[in-house]
Simulated assay, not measured.
Amino acid sequence: MKKLLVKFRTAKSQLDRLLQNRDGVAGIEMAIVTPMLLLLLCGGGEAAVFLRSHFQASQMASTVADAISRYETITASDISSIFSVSSEVMGSSDFEDKGYVILSSVTRSSGGIPVVAWQCKGGGVASASRIGLVTKTATLPQNLVLDATDNVIVAEVFYQYDPIFKGIAPASMEQQLYKTAVFRPRLGNLTTAPGC
């Protein structure tokens, strides 16, 4: 019994020394905290790139619609040259592969219904226009209503966003971004199809 008591006291004293020893505590804390910090860093970076892509797609729609609305008459080569700089406008080298732009001229018909007069499309991943088809009723963004003799240029930008960190980013981030911009032509009505 005496031997057992000595062993118990020895084990207790070793346990006390181990609990009082602070060597390696910082290393253990760092091993626990580092994965969480990396997760926050990667998640924050992913969120920033995602928001930047939304902003750039919106800016691109606005820039393209504004550029087209400044023409008095438009040709297919004018539209082609605007589409050719789309990657620079978007600020992304992969827009040619993952992006798509649809330009539509929408005018009000004699019956008072907005109709798509013409459309031009360009980019990598083809998408269907949410505005409508040529000579069909147009669905204008934000319930825009045209006056009797009004017409507008609508730019639709589609961009397939792929997260940088697919394992960390939520699945909802992997989506096709869609942005529109509407401008009224300044110099001409731009209802004549440019032939694109």
Rank of each mutant, 00 (worst) to 15 (best):
R9I: 14
R9N: 14
T10R: 13
K12H: 13
Q14W: 06
Q14F: 12
Q20P: 00
V25P: 02
T34Q: 06
M36W: 10
L38T: 10
L38K: 11
L39I: 04
L40D: 06
G44Q: 01
A47M: 11
A48E: 04
L51C: 09
R52E: 13
H54M: 14
H54I: 11
F55L: 13
S58Q: 13
Q59H: 08
Q59D: 09
A67R: 11
I68D: 07
I68L: 11
Y71D: 10
T75L: 04
S77D: 15
I79W: 09
I79D: 07
S81P: 08
S81H: 12
S87D: 09
M90R: 02
D94T: 15
E96K: 10
D97K: 12
D97I: 03
K98H: 15
K98I: 08
S105N: 07
T107S: 14
G111D: 04
I113G: 10
V115W: 11
G122V: 01
G123F: 04
V125Y: 07
V125D: 13
V125E: 14
V125M: 12
S127Q: 14
L133G: 01
K136I: 00
K136S: 11
T139Q: 06
Q142N: 14
Q142L: 10
Q142I: 05
L144E: 04
V145F: 00
L146S: 05
T149Q: 08
D150G: 11
N151C: 04
I153S: 01
V154Y: 05
A155G: 06
A155E: 06
E156R: 02
V157D: 09
Q160D: 15
D162W: 07
D162F: 13
I164C: 01
F165V: 12
I168F: 11
A171F: 09
A171P: 03
S172M: 12
M173D: 06
Q176V: 07
L177V: 05
K179T: 13
K179I: 01
A181V: 02
V182Q: 04
P185E: 10
P185A: 07
R186Y: 05
R186E: 07
L187K: 03
L187N: 05
P194Q: 00
